[in-house]
Structures are given as C-alpha cells and as structure tokens.
Amino acid sequence: MTRNDEVETQLPGMDAASIAVKPGPTGRPQRAFPVPAPLAQHGPAKIIALCNQKGGVGKTTTSINLGASLAEYGRRVLAVDFDPQGALSAGLGARTHDATTIYDLLLNRHADVQEAIQSTSTPGLDIIPANIDLSAAEVHLVNEVAREQILAGVLRKVANDYDVILVDCQPSLGILTVNALTASHGVLIPLECEYFALRGVALLIETIDKVRERLNPAIELDGILATMYDSRTLHSREVLERVVDAFGDRVLETVISRTVKFPDASVAATPITQFAPEHQAAEAYRQLARELVFRGAVA
C-alpha cells in the first residue's frame, strides 16, 4: 500500500466527549465521542435519509459502514436501498433477483414488508434491497394519491422493530428522493471534498426546507459529512474550510478520508468495520456513529 492510499484520521483513545483532543480537519477541536450506552429497549426507529443529488460522494459507503458501526454499538439497523443501481444491496451481499424488493413494497400496498427484509453478515444490520426495477417507480407513482408518502407508509410497518433506518437515496431530487425525505426524521448529507460537490448543497438544503414546509414538518438536517478527504492536498483543505464557513456546526466533526480500503471492502460485500476492523477508515465510521448518538440524531 502506498502513502497515497492513506490519510491519518485516527483519534486518540479518549472517553470523554467534552475533551478537545487536537485541531481537527474542520478547523475545530476534534473530540473523541464516548461509546454510547446500551439501549434498554429497541424502537421506534429514527429514519435518516442519506441524500446528495451528486453521485459518487459516498452515500452508499456511508450507509453501509454507518449502519454496521451502529450495529456494533447494539443498535438494530435497517438499511433501505432506494437507488435503482442497487449498490447498497451489492455492498451488503443482498439478493436482488427472485426476491421482494423496495420496488414491490412501493407499488403493492398488500406486499409483506417482512418478506423483503434480508439479514446481512453484520449482526443487527438488515437490508431491504433494490434492483433496476426501481427506476420505473417514478413513472408508476406519478398518478398515485399522496405519492410522496408511500415510503413512509412502508417503513411505518417495521419502525418499532429497529432503532435506526438508513435510506440510501439515488443521486437526484426526483420523487423517490422526496419520498425518502418525507419519510425521514433526519437527513445526512455526504459531501465529497471537491469543489464541484459544493455547488449542489444549497439546492439540496432548499429542497429539504420545502419538504419541511409542505410535507414533513419534523425533518431536520442531522449533519453534513465530509468524505473522500485528503489532508495532503490544498484543494481538499480549502473545500472543507469553505463548507465549515458556510454551514458551521451543521458540518460534522468526523471526516471520512480517502482510502483504497473502501472499494476493496465493497468487492468483498463486507462493511469496512469487518473487512479491516483496525483500519483508520473503520474507526472513522465508528467515530461517526458515536458523534450522531452524542448529537441526539440517533438513540
């Protein structure tokens, strides 16, 4: 492995969230958030949509590894593949053919949600898969009554079985993404540390505001997550500084660095926390899980 493959993000082993460790990549003190306490009971789930209309920013990677990290901390997690490309399903080794998918649940109100749920290799992490059929859903949903709320109705049936439901959205702001936002309590925006990735964030936040105003008053922005960060490049550092200047505390302290371990783990259909449990990337996603619990975005 070359030096270009790794960027240092490892946090010292501190257990007090209030202790400033060192200046972090975001320019703020980088804290070590505490390991969350076990839950006395499970459910109802906090539903979080992972959205960005730009592709290739780390939505699916974050859905997989955040879900696995939360499951490590005793949370029951359901990942919902809401992208016709089915990358989340492939990344978790889910069956997508001859299987009930999220497409079936959207179009058939009598379909059994439990039949669509598949377990993964990570204890506590389940998935509802998707395949290319989902690309036809927008056409079929156009004439449906309350079409923006169909996913919410599907997830409501299993919300009490989980602590967190992560919805991996497709890279668009179409009716499927609006469905995800309408169903969700919070939104996590993965943002690649690259200039062109910045341009659509304001539009996405505007869309979230419209959904809050018209469809889902409860939705909140849980945070903007910087991904694919390379501290050795001036460009990455400048983009991250601009994001923090623009959005302040809405930018999470956790930063996900670029590494070849992520595509390697994807090929193995395994979360990074299992594929390379001691790697800095695995610790970064555990840190993200701890930060979201600390912020109250997740139970």
Rank of each mutant, 00 (worst) to 15 (best):
R214K: 14
V154E: 09
I256R: 03
D163C: 04
N216H: 07
L225W: 02
D209M: 03
D222T: 10
T227D: 03
T227P: 11
A226H: 07
E213V: 01
V154P: 11
I256T: 03
D230L: 01
H235V: 13
A183N: 05
A159F: 14
F247P: 14
I208E: 11
R156Y: 12
R232K: 04
L221K: 04
I189K: 11
E241T: 08
S257Y: 09
T254L: 05
A226P: 14
R250G: 00
D161N: 13
I175Y: 00
E194G: 15
R242S: 12
G174C: 11
I189C: 13
T182A: 09
N160H: 14
G200M: 02
V239L: 00
T254I: 12
V164D: 07
Y162T: 01
H235N: 09
M228Y: 11
R212F: 05
K261W: 08
I189V: 11
P190R: 08
V187H: 03
V255S: 01
R237W: 05
N179K: 05
H140K: 15
L166M: 04
N160W: 09
H140P: 09
V255C: 04
E148Y: 05
E148N: 08
L204M: 14
L155G: 06
V158D: 05
K261D: 12
E253M: 07
R156Q: 13
E144W: 02
R199M: 10
V239S: 00
F196Q: 05
R199C: 10
E238S: 10
G174T: 00
K210D: 06
S172K: 13
V201W: 03
A146E: 15
V211E: 00
R237K: 08
V139I: 04
T227R: 04
K210V: 13
E220C: 06
P171V: 05
Y195I: 15
